[in-house]
Amino acid sequence: MLSELISAFRGGQVDFQSIVIQLLALLVIIFLVLPFHEWAHAFTALKLGDTSVKYRGRLSFNPLAHIDVMGSICLLCFGFGWAKPVPIDPRNFKNEKTGMAITALAGPVANLIAALVGDLIFFAIGAFAPSFFMTTVGGYIGYFLRYYVMINVYLAVFNLVPIPPLDGSKILFVFLPDRIVYKFYQYERYIMFALFALLWMGFLSTPLAYLSNFVQNGIDFIAKLPFLWAF
């Protein structure tokens, strides 16, 4: 049943109910996971020495502190989106570039943790109550969990693309000289528009889908380990 559910999902076999479930999963991500993503940035920055995040109201799981309206709309409409970026002062880190890289990495890691939790619930149900997924309600819940995991993995992979202003660019900057990093920041707005254009035209769809599938297979493998006795 689990393999059939996964295959149906990846094969694009969806109906009206499935679309409603996808919207519900996206709302959970907007109101719970994106705040967790931004909180992870703020918490990591604080631990690395940037105490200024304490006074910006971002060390909170309150969705209102993190939600970006346009980013939420894009997530609902196009499957990729964002929350309000957490203001970080890298001057408070012992090493500015390394501190920013670790802080940036915390966000995608938060998405992967959220994906793993959803996957653990999925495989736990499959292990202890496999017939549940055969019911109508169970099938919808299974589909919800699979879509929730997929979007979290996609957001993690997308954010790790080394293009400003995505989190991956902060990791890339560790390995680049300051003069090149400065150029990236100087033209960040234009790079961002180019990124959206590439997404809109679908040029990044195939590589992002390939990487997301690879990562999701890894998440599936890890989540399934505690329940191998059942499969």
Score class of each variant (00 low, 15 high):
P90S: 14
A40P: 00
P85H: 12
R58A: 11
H66I: 09
L26G: 04
T51D: 05
I73M: 13
V33P: 01
S52R: 09
F80R: 14
L24A: 07
G57F: 13
L76Q: 09
A40H: 08
H66V: 10
E96H: 00
D68T: 11
L64I: 08
L48M: 12
L59M: 04
K54L: 14
V33Q: 06
M70P: 06
N92C: 08
E38V: 11
L64S: 03
L24S: 03
S52G: 09
Q17T: 08
K54F: 03
L34A: 12
F61G: 10
V33A: 15
L34K: 08
I73G: 02
K97T: 14
I73E: 03
L26I: 04
L76M: 14
E96Q: 15
E38C: 08
L27E: 00
S60A: 05
D15W: 00
K47S: 11
I30D: 04
G12H: 04
Y55D: 12
A101F: 01
F36D: 09
P63Q: 11
H37L: 09
I67G: 12
F80S: 13
W39T: 12
D89N: 15
A40Q: 09
F31C: 06
T44R: 05
C77K: 09
F78V: 15
K54Q: 14
M100G: 15
A101H: 06
R10G: 06
Q13G: 05
H66K: 02
T98Y: 13
Q17C: 07
H37A: 07
A83N: 08
V53N: 02
A25P: 00
F31E: 00
D89A: 03
A65P: 02
L59R: 08
